[in-house]
Design a protein around this nucleic acid. Structure first.
Lengths: 219, 219
DNA sequence: GCCTTTTCGTTGTAAAAACAACAGATTTAT
DNA sequence: ATAAATCTGTTGTTTTTACAACGAAAAGGC
């Protein structure tokens, strides 16, 4: 359990809490680590979840099969990411998606009741975790709305402009780095990579933007 | 103010709190009720919000109009639903969307600082409101993720299938009512109305669905 | 260093969507 | 009850996207 503390320290959930403070919290929060083989389901649609979870190792896909059996991947969970928290915290929320291990995985579970109910004074950093969770979910909410703002644009060019403008304003510079490669950016904006790449180059030729790998400049 | 207590009692924010316990909380939370006519804006993009709000009566759309006049409906707020909370909780978050009354509405405002800061006095149900707020924000996140799931689909048909499947499963019936007219549904899924209407009729001709105004049936 | 894998840009084609314009049905207002 | 406004379906045209296939450049492993 101890070996995962450096990973946990970097997560938003434990932001502002040092490594030696995390250790006693693990038992307070009834932490439990489980392993999954590639192809196994970590969570399934319809499940009732009572754990806050953080992915320690591997990669997960949050996906859904619709009425006619078509599958859609909703989200990719990377190492250190929290997932399923909205289902664990909400009162009686059944999972609407499946969570599949696409690699061998290691997941840490925290009892949600222990997390959101502040325990007696012994665990003084607990209230900070509660607050972290509160702000994290609010921020996640706003990020989702922003993502919807980009996706709602009709053309690939408009989606790109929407996203790049926001990134520029967030980083307070017309030159900035994006956290995606081309494929990931396309997946984020829900467009085809090659079509997007094509559009980016057109925009560059028209003198709207400059870019080099992950560095972009709005002109 | 008193007459709204029976409505508030049924809301997520005051879940588990009885009517006679709500009354003293209203002053503690500095509640204020305002009315809006159909077509009026309750909140506007760029606003800084310091109130948790609950819709007592009517229906609201959380939406955004872009430079070219394209409208994107992010969320539908029904009676008893809370809105804008993610912006109120964060310290310096400006609203990304407008909130429009699509019917005559009545909204109650609570000072967010009073809500999330548990008071010292004998307001013992206050901490339960805080917990309810957690639940509500989590649920909101889930709804946003669902919407992204629909929008992430490449074709209008897939978007429709995704949305209608979910609505069917949410209402636990293959026949159900949607809360949108055609234009609003198009705005919600971020596609052109006529193209969507066309696609719906094709799907009906292919025997996939039946519909009549706002009532749909999956076959 | 070299080889392998990944990333990125480019092109052409087929499919799909946006857009515009219009007519009939339905709802709302007076 | 009638007129006005809104909603819905339909069609044709233009624009945009998805898809597939490929080579060059860059990154990573040994």
């Amino acid at each position: 359990m101890k070996k995962y503390i450096p990973i946990l320290k970097e997560t938003q959930l434990f932001s502002g809490i040092s490594e030696n403070e995390i250790e006693p919290m693990l038992s307070c929060l009834q932490a439990e680590v489980r392993s999954y083989k590639k192809g196994e389901y970590v969570l399934s649609q319809g499940d009732s979840l009572s754990y806050i979870t953080v992915l320690l190792e591997g990669c997960l896909h949050v996906q859904k099969d619709d009425y006619w059996g078509n599958r859609s991947i909703v989200n990719v969970v990377g190492e250190g990411d929290m997932f399923g928290e909205a289902y664990a915290i909400a009162d009686d929320a059944r999972l609407l998606n499946d969570v599949l291990a696409v690699e061998d995985c290691r997941v840490i579970f925290f009892d949600v009741k222990r997390v959101i109910t502040v325990c007696s004074s012994a665990c003084r950093f607990h209230s900070m975790v509660v607050q972290n969770l509160f702000f994290a979910i609010s921020e996640k909410n706003r990020r989702l709305v922003q993502k919807i703002g980009h996706m709602s644009k009709r053309t690939t060019r408009e989606k790109l402009i929407s996203y790049l403008s926001e990134e520029a304003s967030k980083q307070q510079s017309s030159t900035f780095l994006i956290p995606f490669n081309r494929q990931q950016l396309a997946d984020f904006l829900c467009v085809d990579r090659s079509a997007m790449s094509n559009e980016l180059c057109k925009m560059r030729n028209e003198g709207l933007i400059k870019f080099e790998r992950k560095q972009f400049t709005l002109l």
